[in-house]
């Protein structure tokens, strides 16, 4: 895509958060895109799943203008969703432009992407915030049958492009203990990468009724944290 044309390409947008302090180190501008390729039971932004419900569509050029007043105060942007990698072509243009302004560009992904297809996005992405939802391919948790995404994780880790790995823990629909173990076995060799283990929150989510009695106890969460540390992960944060 030539740059001029790329700047005009459109991105379905859910919202822009000028300042966010939870998407990586420092202050960042968060951009939420619309549209996701999976259907997590606990999705808190179900309205972002379907591209039909987009708040608006903006060109990359206009998006850059929109965030310009915020950029003096942030280290960069984080694109969340929805699933940002669905728009790898547009984001590639966006990131190229923002790099010219010395801003770092992060992608917050569910990890189920085809890395060949989005290779050029990976190249221009500074860091990924990488979600590991589940490792089985039943589709119980994520609504679609997909195989695990640990290979993608390993690939990005080797490139030094992972800021943090996340797992949202439940007592059912996913074997959280196994997920934590497997991630930890990988992360123990990457002491600079944060592993965030998050207790599922049900309020306001898509299928509250299905998961409200699948919320782990604090003790269960503590145990997951301990498993990760015992395996040798240096930076573990348990979020209750």
């Amino acid at each position: 895509m030539c740059s001029k044309e790329g700047l005009q390409s459109k991105l379905p947008l859910h919202k822009v958060l000028p300042f966010a302090n939870v998407d990586g180190i420092g202050n960042r501008t968060s951009i939420f895109v619309q549209g996701c390729d999976i259907r997590c039971l606990y999705c808190h932004n179900p309205e972002t799943q379907d591209v039909k419900f987009k708040e608006r569509e903006v060109s990359i050029e206009d998006l850059i203008k929109e965030i310009e007043p915020y950029t003096p105060y942030v280290r960069g942007i984080t694109v969340s969703g929805g699933e940002p990698t669905l728009y790898h072509k547009q984001l590639e243009v966006l990131f190229d432009e923002l790099h010219k302004q010395n801003l770092t560009c992060y992608v917050d992904s569910n990890g189920y992407f085809d890395r060949e297809r989005i290779a050029s996005l990976i190249e221009v992405t500074d860091k990924f915030l990488f979600d590991v939802k589940t490792l089985d391919s039943s589709g119980d948790l994520i609504g679609v049958k997909k195989t695990g995404n640990l290979e993608n994780l390993k690939y990005l880790l080797k490139l030094g492009k992972v800021e943090e790995v996340r797992h949202v823990a439940l007592t059912s629909f996913v074997d959280s203990e196994n997920v934590v173990r497997q991630i930890s076995e990988i992360l123990k060799d990457y002491p600079e990468v944060l592993f965030r283990i998050i207790k599922v929150h049900t309020r306001g989510c898509m299928h509250e009724d299905l998961i409200k009695d699948k919320v782990p106890s604090n003790r269960f969460m503590g145990n997951l944290g301990k498993i990760a540390s015992d395996i040798g992960v240096k930076l573990v944060r348990v979020q209750l």
Binding site: N21, I25, G26, P72
Partner: peptide, 10 residues
């Protein structure tokens, strides 16, 4: 760190 970013920017 996020606040310091804002101060530096300001």
């Amino acid at each position: 760190d996020a606040v310091l970013d804002i101060i530096k920017g300001a």
